[in-house]
Design a protein around this nucleic acid. Sequence first.
DNA 1: ACACTATTCCATAGAACATTGGAGGATGAG
DNA 2: CTCATCCTCCAATGTTCTATGGAATAGTGT
Lengths: 229, 229
Amino acid sequence: MSSPAKTELFERVARVGKAMGHPARLELLDLLGQGECPVEPLAAAAGLRLSTASAHLQVLRRAGLVTTRRAGTSIRYSLAGDDVATLYAAQRAVAAAHLDDLEPARRAFLGLTTNDPQTDPAVQEISREELLRRVRDGHATVLDVRPAREYAAGHIPGAISIPADELADRFAELPTATTVVAYCRGPHCVLSYDAVRLLTQHGRNAIRLVDGMPEWRLSGLPVAHDPAA
Amino acid sequence: MSSPAKTELFERVARVGKAMGHPARLELLDLLGQGECPVEPLAAAAGLRLSTASAHLQVLRRAGLVTTRRAGTSIRYSLAGDDVATLYAAQRAVAAAHLDDLEPARRAFLGLTTNDPQTDPAVQEISREELLRRVRDGHATVLDVRPAREYAAGHIPGAISIPADELADRFAELPTATTVVAYCRGPHCVLSYDAVRLLTQHGRNAIRLVDGMPEWRLSGLPVAHDPAA
DNA sequence: ACACTATTCCATAGAACATTGGAGGATGAG
DNA sequence: CTCATCCTCCAATGTTCTATGGAATAGTGT
């Protein structure tokens, strides 16, 4: 009954799902959502061997989710389009809505203690609109705690870049009069949570922007690019 | 470097992708997009053995994509929410946009000959808005060619139900003065293509509605439900 | 042309997945 | 109570996927 042509058609669509069906590949998509990147830094950030990361990237490429471009001696991977970032966000949303054990895992990973991010004593969040309001009124300093490469690939206009692992040594660069609004890669990135906790422990007013850079961009808000390659 | 908590978090999200990474499961999602349904008709429609279909449905259920409800002696499966239908549509869109061999496979399955559905001599399509306009002006008869069960679970208001396999015997029920606009399950369903070709061969004015029932519903347009269970 | 570097390819072993037929469970009908 | 129906669960098989370390490759810069 099942025609081969039908199976073949659904198999094509399934290739996309299959590619998004492995934790390592989802993490690579998460990282690529920040901007194009060579293989080696991707592997390092995801905690993968180089050959493993390369193999996963091939799967993503064959599924049409990422593309490559040669830049000098290295090969830069990037998402094949905004629709891929949107698909990834939709999958996260479905998982969050219908899987009972996702939110506990998320809280465990991010170091959250209470159920509601709005009432967590350690890390509170504001919306993108609220951030824009506070910046306009001069009450907020926007802090990008992602690695320098990702900041360079695109960041919120006016944001200061202090990668999370340098934050403890670079407090001085942050003004004390305003609230610091930290952001990072997105809802599954620990960097801004750690940053807000660190700043708060040192008596600063610090808060987190909901989501991260890809969601900012997908919302149609402006993105600043570093002129440096 | 890769924390177990991080892998665990991404694994949860990957479960959704993995569930959408098999052609049979995508077809089941496609069918469930028409409305809730017991296992046996699903298996029959997808061309699967009962135990195979059941196993796939368990995977979908564990991934949070479908839910079950007991109705007498049978168990009705349905999509866990509109977000699942949206995710499925997004995955189809990404596959269509970035996979070179999807469109050929689609055309082969649906029996299309030219690249552009608007110029295909056999099957032309109109938008949902155009359908509404024509119906309002009395120039169109809407025809639902899906199985009776799916029509009963939700259909375009005013549509006539003639399942595709009965169409050849039931021409008489269709008015001759208006154009027949046939619709079915969606862009990966062959029923309305076959129906339009059949009607056209018999000298009727027939045309296809773009996409199908789930996309109509997700567009926020009204859906009529059969009072019968 | 040379060597260098970033990345892919390869072979393999182990893990996860899909299919199948049949046994087992729950529900409603008689 | 027993039967019939509908579905799930199970165990076994074959298939596909993943990780790994090392070899191979392909552009680049000198």
